[in-house]
Nucleic acid binder design. Sequence first.
DNA 1: AACTTTATCAACCGCCACGAT
DNA 2: TATCGTGGCGGTTGATAAAGT
Length: 357
Amino acid sequence: MGRHSCCLKQKLRKGLWSPEEDEKLFNHITRFGVGCWSSVPKQAGLQRCGKSCRLRWINYLRPDLKRGMFSQQEEDVIISLHELLGNRWAQIAAQLPGRTDNEIKNFWNSCLKKKLMKQGIDPATHKPLTEPYIKEESKLTEKTATNPMQIPSVTSQGSSFLISDSSYFDNNGLSEASRDIFSSKSALDPLFCYDFQSGYTLPMNNYQSESQFGINPSYGFSSMPSLTNSDHAVVSVTEFSDNNSPSKISSLLFMNDQVKESNSSNSSNMSTIYPSQMRTTMIENNNNNAGFSWDGDNKLDPLFQFQVNAIKSEDFGTSSWEEGQIQTQNSIDFNSYPLTSLSEDLTEANFDVFHHI
DNA sequence: AACTTTATCAACCGCCACGAT
DNA sequence: TATCGTGGCGGTTGATAAAGT
């Protein structure tokens, strides 16, 4: 129990990953996909435990990761989901394409918590801070002489809703049953969609047939949304104004741009659509032979200069890759990577594309 | 310029759940 | 049923960068 057997082995490297290690792991996963993590280090020639490899891939090397600052919309989603789910970072991350649980957790601990405190909200309960605490905080803020303590309120920034007041949800808020439905559902369930308004958990397919938005079921993925480069994932946050609703929380729906375009005019309660930046860097760079390279404030650029072309030039040996397929790839195209089981969140329903290999 | 404090974030640790044997 | 191996998760740590003094 506890420590994994692989971690007991000696001579395993720990700490930060070197560019060479990253390259090895990235090459291995892109060539062979994710199978048994415990066998990855050996196959990839890494002196790491499988667990470490998995973490590195999920949190850093995965091509669909979105890099850079969190947008206001993402921030709002995190806050609202945190109120619902608590520190279930994986489940929160499942609703934020391109973001990892670790990233969200760090963002919460280093930034959002403080932000909420400044707004007079207890980040743990999402309720207004107790009077003594507020007084204490007021003293501190007076010293810094900037902003007076603000009583939290529901505000609207841009096209998004901002829950800055826990009273936004009545004390009953989401029913315990509803909360349980949401939180007990696997974060990685790609076909999971919770309808806060009705309290029903619907498979995406059902949701599509019943929703006014006509959601494409292919957007039911949870963590690898950008592996299809023809479709883009956005999240809509729908704010319900029905005060009688037991759950005035928003519903999160995965939609594509087309859906957004075609519905934005006639869906008055759709208040937020994620910006196109939600698309991952990798997809944005699809036509630029971007390969293994993040843009903007990425950290991989200086470390990795190689491109997918480098992979193509390797001897694929007994790999299932076919020569022709490789030759025809003039840009990185994760649609055709043999990611047969990148993680459990990749299901046949959503990633059939991978099985053609 | 040197030192200290604070913020950020990658990575590790320990635990749990689950399937295989 | 018990044990083992593994994947996954949340909490925590430690290194580094940035900001402040």
